[in-house]
């Protein structure tokens, strides 16, 4: 629901990079969105198409990599992917978990000329 404001932030961050590195053309913007982030990828690309129109970023491809939720059990050190949002260690049933990924909402890299 807040994808529009996210895309505004994203465009501002990419434009900063364009300026800082004297980029002529941005071909691709690769973002990583964790499965726990409240972001709908298709809304993100839709908003990007609308907001980039007429800007230097028009025509660039917004590629979204969805990042799975991974945790490490602090008891038995097992690393595992969380499925169906069940936050228990599948090996020892421990609940003291360290989340390793799945909350990302970041611009990973750009493909530019």
């Amino acid at each position: 629901m807040h994808e529009l404001s996210l895309v505004q932030e994203l465009i501002a961050l990419v434009e900063e990079q364009v300026k800082a590195h004297q980029v002529k053309k941005v071909h691709r913007i690769v973002v990583r969105i964790g499965k726990m982030a409240a972001v709908v990828p298709s809304s993100l690309t839709f908003c990007f198409e609308i907001l980039s129109r007429g800007s230097q970023l028009e025509g660039a491809i917004l590629e979204i990599e969805e990042i799975p939720i991974r945790c490490r059990c602090t008891r038995c050190q097992e690393e595992f992917e969380v499925e169906s949002f069940i936050f228990f260690c599948p090996k020892c049933q421990g609940s003291e978990l360290k989340q390793l990924s799945g909350r990302e909402c970041l611009i990973h890299h750009l493909e530019v000329d």
């Binding site: 996210l6 994203l10 973002v31 493909e111």
Partner: peptide
């Protein structure tokens, strides 16, 4: 060319 960014979109 690839430009690494690694910037949190929600950083502001």
């Amino acid at each position: 060319m690839e430009l690494k960014v690694l910037s949190n979109i929600l950083k502001a």
